[in-house]
Design a binder for these strands. Sequence first.
RNA 1: GGAGAGAUGGCAGAGUGGUCGAUUGCGGUGGUCUUGAAAACCAUUGAGCCGAAAGGUUCCGGGGGUUCGAAUCCCUCUCUCUCCGCCA
Length: 423
Amino acid sequence: MIDIKLLREYPEKLRSAIARKKFTVDIDYILTLDGIRRAKITESEQARSAQKTASQSMAKFNKGSPEFLEKQLELKEVSVKAKKLEAEAKDADLKFHDAFLEIPNLPDPSVPIGNSESDNEVISSWGSIDVFPHAKPHYEIPWFESRVDFSRGVKVAGAGFPFYIGEMAQLVRALVNYFLESAYQNGYEEILPPILVNADSARATGQLPDKEGQMYFDSSEGFYLVPTAEVPVTNFFRNEIFSYKEMPIYRCAYTPCFRREAGSWGADVRGLNRLHQFDKVELVKWTQAETSMDELEKLKDNVENLLQSLELPYRVLRMCSGDIGFPHAKQYDIEVFSAGQKRWLEVSSCSNFTDFQARRAGIRYRDKSGKIHTAHTLNGSGLAIPRVLASILENNLQSDGRVKIPSVLQKWISKEYIGDITE
RNA sequence: GGAGAGAUGGCAGAGUGGUCGAUUGCGGUGGUCUUGAAAACCAUUGAGCCGAAAGGUUCCGGGGGUUCGAAUCCCUCUCUCUCCGCCA
């Protein structure tokens, strides 16, 4: 939800920003609804005020006295009128609000203007992407199928729900541990959130109504399975006001993530590239308005350091206006190179939502003078496990078929190599 | 799952139809005093919406109803606590 002042005072600015984002919103219509709403509210409140004043004078009369009965009759009419106007005002407010919620967040001025994926800017890259002769996609490594069991996953759950077995399960656990520990070193406090959330939470972070079909839904209780830890973690402070002294707040969380991926099930989904359930460590920040862009850079640096320490080649994309999401003001995508598939795989998306999510979620802070402001929220994956796993398997594949384990993970998986080459 | 009790401001806790957005205590903030601090004392201290402002209006778990008037009465949902049952 944007600042309503932008709509009222700078509709042209808003129009052009929305156009840059490739969204279509009828600003004139929303402005009209705002006008109606304001008029109705004023009218209704005046009626209510008159009613209250008159009603208070009732207290003076004895119940049942002629004056009382006369006045009561008179006030009945006033009351009916006030209720009618109140209902109209409520209706107008609801109509406006629904339309207003359709306005996306504005792209930051530093976001390159573009229409699609192809206009994203590669702003940096790290590591070598020279392809070695024995490189192959991870799903073609001979022992892969026996260690990440998709077919039994289909039997037990469905497509996109693999079993990780033995060394691969250990490797997933090692990555989760490593990412959480790194986050801790960088000042993020670890939390373990619920992985089912209610509709209010999904709405506050912007998953509803936009991405309703992408979440698994439990209709018996009204729960959504989290598509990312962002949802429960950001909502932790929903409808709360904190002091500027407490900010910025850094938190990290590991959760499984569940995505229906409706409509995107086609090419490029082999192996670990796209799953219905996957593990991810998420980094979340709550900041004051002035510092959020700096905090985004720091967040991105934290994520880059993870990939460097894993010795995986990657590149950083500054996402263009047409490709950043509905609630985003600025977004970096970080893609790891997968030597076997010879593709870039997105393993992290670092975003500044400015005040957009926080306004929906009612997350605010008091500055030095006691004035209340909407907080800024940010988040970034640090990191999504399956694609990192795919990249480790492909980039670290030895000519004998084994896979070298990055040294930073050996604290949790005390092996230099994995992979049963007798298979 | 069964029976009962309850949900009020950052927290604790009054208020059971008529100036109640709400007594009071704690906490917070500012001040006096002090070399500094503590204590004490004084003052101040919820949020949303409409409005240029003055001011108005809404909010006592959520939703609905009764009434001229609801924190207070009724219905309903959610949650919490106690006891019983079941159980990782």
